[in-house]
Amino acid sequence: MIEIKYFTFNPFQENTYLLINDKNECIIIDPGCYFENERKELQDYIANRGLKVARLLNTHCHIDHIFGNTFVSRTYNVGLEIHPADQVVLDSSPQVGQMYNIPFEPSVNPTSYLQEGDKIQFGDDELEVRFTPGHAPGHVVFYCASQQFVIGGDVLFYLSVGRTDLPGCDHAALMRSIREQLFTLPDEVRVYPGHGQSTTIGFEKEHNPFMKEE
């Protein structure tokens, strides 16, 4: 059984996720901790729960999702895993931080790459990697069929979708990713996005105004 814990960090109000299993192992997805108090909050939570950090994953490499990559990697001795198509986004992130006037310690480089269809074993459960480009060229989501949830990054939000006005974005690809990779999941699947509240596939199919326009 996977427990989902999230923190909302940094000036972009990004959701950082911890997936915790029965063996007190955890996977950290998109560590957005920017300020020192945010890093302490994350570290204290992991210490107080007695958790062992097993993996560090990024749904994509926009700066608000990677501020804490180096901190997590060095603190817990775990390698970063991203989709190879987002390496270019990771490489350009220091310049993007300067552009937003939010300097940060550059992210570590990945030690391995995630591919479409990969299965991530996590205790008795499994996460499936689904390739969902559009908001970023190498965006992926992590789907847990046994518990009917998806860690969705910035693809689909409550009554909204990921922005596509940034370098490397592709609106048509985003819409295709939502239709083919998310809306093909059961209606009851809960989506935990990179910003804002969670939602469900069924609710967004029926009510999301951006998808109704398509």
Rank of each mutant, 00 (worst) to 15 (best):
Y192K: 00
H139C: 10
Q95L: 12
T75F: 01
F12C: 10
G168M: 05
E14C: 13
I29C: 11
E38P: 07
L185M: 14
Y45G: 11
G138H: 12
H60A: 11
L174Y: 11
E81C: 15
Y100D: 03
A47L: 14
Y6H: 15
Y34T: 10
L114I: 12
I20M: 11
V89Y: 05
N109T: 10
V141K: 02
I66F: 02
P137V: 07
A136V: 04
A136G: 13
F9C: 05
P167G: 09
I46R: 13
T111W: 04
L80R: 12
Y143T: 00
I151D: 02
K52H: 06
G196N: 05
E204K: 01
G162Q: 02
G162K: 03
V96S: 05
L166C: 02
D64W: 12
E81Q: 15
R163K: 05
I46S: 09
Y34K: 08
Q147L: 12
P11L: 11
D170E: 12
D22E: 13
D170K: 01
F203C: 03
S177A: 12
N69Y: 07
Q43S: 10
T70C: 09
Q87A: 05
V72S: 03
E3G: 11
I29K: 01
L51K: 14
Q181I: 02
E180V: 03
D22S: 13
K23Q: 15
V191Q: 04
H62V: 02
Y45H: 09
F7H: 07
T164A: 09
F71W: 15
F7N: 07
Q95F: 04
I151Q: 00
Q95R: 11
N77H: 15
G79W: 12
G134H: 05
T59P: 08
S107L: 12
K119R: 14
T70H: 11
L19G: 10
R39K: 14
E81K: 15
P133K: 08
H135I: 01
Q148S: 14
G138V: 06
A54M: 15
S93A: 14
I28Y: 00
E105H: 14
I63Y: 07
Q115Y: 13
A172L: 11
F12N: 01
D124S: 14
V189L: 10
F210S: 00
V89R: 08
L19A: 15
F142I: 09
P110F: 06
H60F: 11
Y34P: 08
L156K: 06
C169V: 01
A85C: 09
I120G: 04
G196V: 09
